[in-house]
Simulated assay, not measured.
Amino acid sequence: MKTCLIVDDSRVIRKVSRHLLEGMGFAVEEAADGKIALEQCEQQMPDVVLLDWNMPVMNGMEFIETLRKLPGGDAPRVVFCTTENDIEHIRAAIDAGADEYVMKPFDRETLHIKLQLVGMA
Rank of each mutant, 00 (worst) to 15 (best):
M1W: 00
K2Q: 12
T3P: 01
T3S: 12
C4F: 01
C4G: 11
L5R: 11
I6Q: 00
R11I: 02
I13R: 04
I13D: 14
V16E: 07
V16A: 09
V16F: 05
L20R: 12
L20A: 13
L21E: 06
E22K: 15
G25P: 00
F26H: 12
V28Y: 04
E29H: 07
E30H: 10
A31W: 00
G34Q: 04
I36M: 09
A37D: 05
A37F: 05
L38Y: 01
L38P: 00
E39T: 13
E39L: 10
Q40M: 15
Q40F: 09
Q40T: 08
E42L: 14
E42Q: 11
Q43K: 09
Q43D: 11
Q44T: 10
Q44M: 11
M45P: 03
P46L: 05
V48P: 00
V49F: 03
V49G: 07
L50G: 02
N54G: 02
V57C: 07
M58K: 10
E62D: 15
E62T: 08
I64E: 03
I64D: 02
L67E: 06
L67M: 07
R68A: 09
R68S: 13
K69S: 14
K69Q: 15
K69P: 00
K69F: 08
L70N: 13
L70W: 03
G72W: 00
G72A: 05
G73P: 02
D74A: 11
D74W: 01
A75R: 15
R77S: 11
V78T: 12
V79I: 15
V79P: 02
F80C: 03
C81W: 01
T82V: 08
N85E: 15
H89G: 14
R91W: 02
R91C: 04
A92F: 11
D95H: 03
A98E: 04
Y101V: 06
P105M: 07
D107W: 04
E109F: 11
T110M: 14
T110S: 11
K114E: 09
L115W: 05
Q116G: 15
V118K: 01
G119L: 11
